[in-house]
């Protein structure tokens, strides 16, 4: 229980740090870029929305910095991020919620898949030291882990969409489709997601394989693995319950650290594929200097990453009895 409370506390602190960074960054920049944006808004939107944006960027300076900070915190808690310029007159929160399912479906599923597959391959590679899997894969994945995601995305488009014409080159669905839960639409969305998903999978799986392989190798020298073999257990059982289950624990912790990297890559992959998710919208807002939308999306990304890490923590607690005990 203490473990859960401590982790939750940590996430609150992290989230607070992100919100504060969001508040301070525009104020610390020279030449107040937000002011330029505000002048473009004026007259287009209702006063309440304008006020929320003013608070967010500190444009209307009759409030003290501290007062502005608390008003901003209040707005964030109530989900008020102002109005998007790019998708005027949508509220930022609405845009974010629209983009979210696409990203969760693409990046979320791919990341989990990459983690599970990579962990499995890493375990088997370590188990068969010096085998084909073990001698071929690590060097290959050391190299692919250095691939820029977006470049691989470009290559994938060039090869599979342009040269071979097998798959659509961009977007999340055909624009002629009606969006909805029909077989035709879902199937088309799946077809559109194959290339971006493969891109993320190929570039992110290497890291999981390498760390899992190395963890397993060090766990294999532990006495309990020797002991399990001495007990005459089947190799399968030793590999899963004794070596694998212990080796995956540091990998789950590593998940927290590597996730930021995967998300960064995914943002660029969405951008290259014009995939209508959070990352694409984030970069659109950057391009259009739509700061309200940009900051809302940034917080969304932070929350998504933190939630995923929390899930990894829960998995750790499930697999490792030591974390469950009060220490």
């Amino acid at each position: 229980m203490r473990f859960v409370v401590r982790r939750l506390g940590f996430f609150v602190v992290t989230l607070w740090a992100a919100v504060t960074a969001n508040f301070l960054i525009p104020r610390l920049m020279p030449g107040n870029p937000a002011l330029a944006m505000m002048s473009r808004y004026r007259g287009h939107i209702n006063p309440a929305s304008l006020h929320a944006i003013e608070i967010a960027f500190g444009v209307n300076n009759h409030q003290s910095l501290l007062g502005a900070y608390f008003s901003y915190l209040g707005n964030v808690v109530r989900g008020r991020f102002g109005v998007s310029l790019t998708f005027f007159p949508d509220a930022v929160s609405r845009d974010v919620l629209q983009a979210l399912p696409w990203t969760l479906a693409l990046v979320g599923v791919t990341t989990i898949l990459a983690f599970l597959l990579g962990t499995l391959i890493g375990l088997v590679a370590a188990w068969r030291r010096g085998g084909i899997l073990d001698s071929v894969l690590p060097p290959i994945f050391v190299i692919t882990s250095a691939f820029p995601y977006f470049w691989l995305a470009m290559l994938a488009i060039w090869l599979f969409a342009i040269k071979l014409g097998w798959l659509p080159q961009s977007g999340g669905y055909r624009i002629t489709d009606d969006v909805g839960w029909t077989w035709a639409f879902v199937g088309d969305a799946m077809r559109h997601s194959i290339l971006p998903a493969l891109t993320i999978l190929v570039t992110s799986i290497g890291g999981w394989i390498l760390t899992m392989r190395n963890n397993t190798i060090s766990v294999l020298t532990e006495d309990y693995v020797r002991m399990a073999r001495a007990k005459g257990l089947s190799p399968w059982r030793v590999m899963w319950t004794y070596a694998g289950r212990n080796a995956i624990l540091p990998n789950l912790t590593g998940f927290a650290m590597s996730l930021g990297f995967v998300v960064s890559g995914a943002i660029l992959v969405e951008f290259v594929f014009n995939y209508p998710g959070v990352g694409w919208m984030f970069l659109q807002s950057v391009e259009n200097q739509d700061y309200a939308l940009m900051q809302g999306l940034f917080l969304m990304i932070v929350i998504a990453v933190l939630t995923a890490i929390l899930a990894a923590d829960a998995a750790t607690a499930m697999l490792d009895p030591r974390t469950r005990d009060v220490r």
């Binding site: 960074a21 930021g260 990297f261 200097q289 940034f298």
Partner: peptide
């Protein structure tokens, strides 16, 4: 460590 650094850098770069 857990903050997504790249989006944060983008936010900063967007202003500068």
């Amino acid at each position: 460590l857990v903050l997504p650094i790249f989006p944060l850098i983008i936010v900063i770069a967007a202003y500068r």
